[in-house]
Design a protein around this nucleic acid. Structure first.
Lengths: 98, 98
DNA sequence: ACTTCATATAAGTATATGCTAATATCTTTA
DNA sequence: TAAAGATATTAGCATATACTTATATGAAGT
């Protein structure tokens, strides 16, 4: 299993869930604290923390504490590079149609 | 939830699984029958058929019967366009770092 | 029509996932 | 260091997922 393989798989695990996808969407508009995200996605705080932990382990988000709060942001460089690599990969070996 | 949202979510569901990701990888090298895929990913035939059904419902693959066999291929145009749209989307609203 | 090969579907089951409720940890301020 | 606010972690439970085995469907040849 190539590295890209594993990375894309993580990516898929991360966004392959409605709640997490909504979290990512909200973060695309700017970094947010856990409580802000909690309000936006309308899930309990623990549920949100758990999803954020998953997203972090997938490298899709970055966390940064600022006092009592923790800001989460999309790991944009990483994600963009990943997607671009995937696209390159797919372009490179297109599936023959028949 | 935007259309792109739903599409990406489907994409994530599709590839967010090791076996399905391996199937996609093998299909990137060219279309294949179910039994070829079965040999490659080393799962039972029903398991492979079920994964292929999932991938199809996610629009990640296309199926085409040819006699007794069914060829599966990556839905490359669809997938590439989707990923490119996602990249555009992420570029458009980058997360502010702090 | 019957058989065979290829694939799909169904039922059952074990494990994974996503939530809730309760509690722990971290940080700041009094 | 005690209290309070913000977030993280844990245990428990319900549902979803990914297999297995058995069976059904589809296509081609006899």
């Amino acid at each position: 299993m190539t590295d890209l393989c594993k990375e894309i798989n993580k990516f898929g695990k991360g966004i392959g869930n409605e709640a997490r996808y909504r979290i990512i969407q909200s973060l695309l508009k700017g970094h947010k604290t856990v409580s802000e995200i909690t309000r936006i996605v309308k899930l309990s705080q623990p549920a949100v923390s758990q999803h954020l932990a998953t997203l972090k382990s997938c490298d899709l988000v970055i966390a940064e504490r600022s006092g009592k709060e923790v800001f989460y942001a999309v790991n944009a460089e990483y994600t963009l590079k990943l997607l671009q690599n995937l696209i390159k990969d797919m372009d490179k070996k297109p599936s023959r149609k028949r």
